[in-house]
């Protein structure tokens, strides 16, 4: 009777104990830091910092002065509005407002999509049928018209209310993606093995399934953030946005009302427009990189890495043929 150690599997045992974890971490970070991720994250971080810090240093954004429609100068870096308000101050507060709306909506949408998608997908049966039906109904609701209807129906449009309206119209697509992913993961052997080990359903969802959904969820989160900020800008621009909080959309709304375009006041509407474009661009770039991480087929490897991989594959093929000859002889 042979001893139960086989030489082939004993070799990797002895090799490479858990040395150099920080090095490995750094290497995987370097692998993930693609140009699109670096640029996207850079844009988002700069805009976020601006929204967080700048409001503390600027003048009162609502203070009216006699200096109306003044172009950029040393005193007013981004000029003034028709009523003499400082555009830079407004932009700082508007950035904070828009980001706040975006984050609240994205968090709400994440929770809603996770609840309906993951729970329905895991439990199956009638609950899944019901959740799917509800998700599909919400999915085909036309977003902006619904926002307009609700927005014009409600008189006191606070920030939370607008965020809530945006959230209930934007979670459905992510829920469907999460449901299909959960359906796939639910049948994997490691979930079955956890069941056989005696894990309770809530722990299977939270500990075994949820971590494997993180990439999908983070991409959904970023997507919800973009849609929310754009949606809020759209609502504000047509005058149905948040009352009492400045956002990029409300700046554009007032610029439009104040006839900034006809008066040639580009400094009033270009900055908020640029901010929306830059943030949307940054978040999209981040989303593309997440996609690249989730979906290896989209992964673009640097040339050196590719040639290394090809060499490894060659070596594997050689191993395989060796194994085959052994098999034939055995």
């Amino acid at each position: 009777m042979a001893t139960s150690t086989d030489p082939t599997s004993a070799v990797p045992n002895s090799a490479a104990p858990t040395a150099g974890t920080p090095g490995r971490l750094r290497a995987s970070l370097r692998r993930l830091a693609t140009p699109s991720l670096v640029i996207g994250a850079g844009l988002v971080v700069v805009i976020t910092l601006f929204g967080l810090i700048a409001p503390f240093f600027v003048a009162d954004p609502l203070a009216i002065s006699n200096l109306g429609m003044a172009p950029p100068s040393a005193e007013h870096w981004l000029g003034t509005t028709q009523t003499g308000q400082d555009v830079l101050a407004q932009l700082a507060w508007a950035t904070r407002g828009s980001l706040l709306v975006g984050v609240i909506v994205a968090v709400l949408a994440l929770f809603l999509s996770a609840f309906f998608g993951i729970l329905g997908g895991y439990l199956g049966g009638w609950i899944d049928e019901g959740f799917s039906l509800f998700t599909n109904v919400v999915l085909i609701l036309p977003g902006l018209p619904l926002m307009i209807v609700i927005g014009s129906y409600v008189q006191q449009r606070g920030l939370l209310l607008i965020a809530f309206i945006l959230a209930i119209t934007s979670w459905a697509a992510a829920a469907r993606v999460l449901r299909s992913q959960t359906l796939s993961i639910r049948t994997r052997d490691y979930v079955q093995a956890a069941k056989v080990a005696g894990e309770k359903p809530h722990r299977i969802i939270a500990v075994e399934i949820l971590p494997n959904l993180l990439p999908v969820m983070s991409s959904g989160f970023v997507f919800a953030l973009i849609t929310a900020i754009l949606g809020e800008a759209g609502l504000s621009f047509i005058g149905l946005g948040v009352v009492g909080t400045q956002t990029w959309g409300s700046m554009l709304f007032y610029a439009q009302n104040g006839q900034a375009l006809t008066l040639g006041g580009w400094w009033w509407f270009v900055p908020p427009g640029l901010m929306i474009a830059a943030l949307g661009c940054g978040l999209s770039l981040i989303n593309f990189s997440i996609d690249g991480i989730i979906n290896p087929r989209l992964r673009t490897a640097p040339k050196a890495a590719r040639s290394v991989r090809r060499a490894e594959q060659g070596a594997e093929r050689a191993d395989d043929s060796e194994a085959t000859t052994k098999e034939v002889l055995a």
Partner: peptide, 28 residues
């Protein structure tokens, strides 16, 4: 208890080896 067919699918890629053994030990 059961040993599954595919060892590439039966271990959760997100968790450490220790986690896979700890859970049944604690649960039982």
């Amino acid at each position: 208890q059961m040993v599954f067919q595919d060892p590439f699918a039966s271990l959760n890629p997100f968790h450490t080896i220790a986690h896979h053994i700890e859970r049944p030990l604690l649960l039982h």
